[in-house]
């Protein structure tokens, strides 16, 4: 069984979950724990938005099937079976990405990879809300990463040098 792809997300859910499913797809091989929690977060978001239209139900059932299968396949991965370890895993990964982007930014390296790192780290900080309220620090980093990704992107498009 393969993961329900980005193209199959119904229109009623696309705006809310597409970005998290994309991060999941990008991490399926690189870090299956990150992929698992991105899909879990997308599942929860989607269920809160639309679980009654036939298209949404069909998508949600296939996403749930895949999540259950992933959890079984990752039976030796404690971060999937214990959400406290899972939370630490996602948090470390998000912060590592954030620090990479921040260091690159401060070194004057502005590129698509820096924008993407800021953006992905902020999305993973969204995913962290699965485990409860965010700490003040993470909340601050999440806002900064979202703003910075938009800002650098705007500068690159308009030809300005980011400050």
């Amino acid at each position: 069984m393969s993961a329900p792809g980005i193209a199959t997300i119904p229109p009623s859910l696309k705006g809310a979950i597409q970005k998290y499913i994309r991060v999941a797809v990008e991490h399926d091989k690189r870090d299956p724990v990150i992929a698992y929690y991105c899909r879990l977060y997308a599942m929860q978001q989607a269920m809160a938005i639309d679980k009654s239209s036939p298209e949404a139900r069909q998508y949600l059932v296939s996403l749930m099937d895949f999540l259950e299968k992933s959890k079984n396949q990752l039976k030796d991965e404690q971060a999937v079976h214990n959400e406290i370890i899972g939370q630490a895993h996602v948090e470390n990964y998000a912060l590592k990405l954030f620090l990479y982007a921040d260091n690159e930014d401060r070194a004057g390296h502005f590129g698509k990879n820096v924008i993407k790192a800021f953006l992905t780290s902020s999305l993973l900080m969204d995913v962290l809300t699965t485990f409860g309220d965010l700490s003040e620090d993470i909340e601050k980093n999440r806002k900064y990463a979202k703003w910075k990704a938009l800002y650098i992107n705007k500068c690159i498009q308009s030809g300005e040098t980011p400050i």
């Binding site: 879990l40 269920m47 679980k51 009654s52 139900r57 949600l60 749930m64 959890k71």
Partner: peptide, 29 residues
Amino acid sequence: GSAIGATGSTQASAEQDELSQRLAKLRQM
């Protein structure tokens, strides 16, 4: 017509409950 509608919505809410239960089970450690 209304009887069919009621059956349809009962079925839909049963499926929604099933998804919620599966989600809760998935998150059990």
